[in-house]
Design a binder for these strands. Structure first.
Lengths: 218, 218
DNA sequence: TCGGACGTCCCCCGCGCGGGGGACCCGATT
DNA sequence: AATCGGGTCCCCCGCGCGGGGGACGTCCGA
């Protein structure tokens, strides 16, 4: 089973370099070379290669835009590998959002480029290690709970518990039932929470709790 | 400059296998082999190797816990590579949150394990392609706006506008002032919103709006 | 031993809110 | 011309809510 590859780069020398690299492999065939993003989109739609290797910087339509157009069309099953000279964070996030199967630097050794094409073709993905490092950092913070505002320390455990329930839009009576206490007690807790946090009413409390991530664990 | 490596795995055969792999490289030295997570943490603190290769499943303390302990101590400069037999999403997210420099499957070819150690040692990171694929998907959705629930289509533009303001914890009077209309008008809009969305009161509306990402663009 | 923090429960009072009506105007559709 | 959806404004009524008080028990640290 031979894999077909499209190469898009505005430098002819780089294109033929990559073609030469792929030609060393019996199971890889470079079926098209294009010099800009629009041509890449068109040729992918026409030839439906297994993998498209796109430079980020290209005339008319850059690699990111081309990626988005290619992957937005469900008729395409082409996997997209993005190549760039210098890594830049914004590029990466846009590329990954668009669903690219790879984000690689041009400093990549030829044999790894070949391996990357095979990886992409089988539906997996890979990211250049230097980018992965920052991606992990970003990913970690994106999953990390937002920092607890210090005024939350003013609340007792019970009050925080009540706040959680208020944030879940329970009425005082419902909270009382869940906590097995009287509703007057709940009113007291809610009042204290509002006072300590400087909130006007339970509506503000709900908004506060949501913005400060007290309720995210859906 | 030679790189020191610690290997942690509860299977002696796998440990010696990895040691053998590293010994083929002149610049790699396997300075410790341990069989459980607690020993890994202790030896890392004592020997301060450049890279620690940890199995996820280990007695006493698993690879994830060990990673967290190692990276939580700022005195350690050891990079952590995690190895696992089967990839599981939860593992990955915990590993990345802890700040691991790599997440690899044991099916990795020996030469790539060597390369992974070098990558980690220089501060970069790498993730097994089969995992990267899902990571990208997850990352994309974590950045993508949550899908608008279809019942929002029932609302008129004006009603959505009012809902936004309700979600921001404004009172009816405040909304009326901002929209330059009477407060009775706002009451009508709010009532319609609640009826159309099947919500009990404005408190539920606030929670609904936040959960469905109608208010995220802080 | 005496406070103080905390959790629990109670009363009264005022008000914002939400549901039930109805009404008018306008623009687009029929 | 008639209709309808959307936006605007108005009334009344009941209720949940939040602030103002106060009270009582427990537990813990000074």
């Amino acid at each position: 089973m031979t894999l077909t590859v499209l190469v898009a780069d505005d430098h002819a020398m780089l294109r033929s370099g990559m073609r030469a690299i792929f030609e060393t492999q019996a199971d890889l065939r470079c079926v098209a070379e294009v010099a800009d993003g629009r041509a890449a989109v068109a040729e992918v739609a026409r030839l439906r290669p297994d993998v498209a290797v796109l430079d980020i910087r290209m005339p008319k339509l850059d690699g990111l835009g081309a990626t988005e157009m290619i992957l937005a069309d469900p008729a395409n099953r082409t996997k997209v590998l993005l190549l760039t000279t210098y890594d830049s964070d914004e590029y990466v996030y846009r590329a990954l959002n668009a669903g690219a199967s790879g984000f690689l630097l041009k400093s990549l050794p030829p044999e790894e480029l070949i391996s990357a094409v095979r990886v992409a073709a089988r539906g997996d993905a890979l990211i250049d290690p230097s980018v992965t490092q920052r991606l992990i950092a970003r990913f970690a913070v994106s999953l990390a709970p937002p920092p607890m505002p210090p005024e939350l320390e003013l609340l007792t455990a019970r009050e925080r518990e009540v706040l959680q329930l208020v944030a879940a839009a329970y009425s005082n009576a419902e909270i009382a039932a869940q906590l097995h206490v009287g509703d007057e007690t709940v009113k007291t807790h809610v009042s204290r929470v509002l006072a300590k946090l400087g909130l006007r009413d339970r509506v503000h409390a709900v908004a506060y709790a949501h913005v400060n991530g007290l309720v995210q664990p859906r």
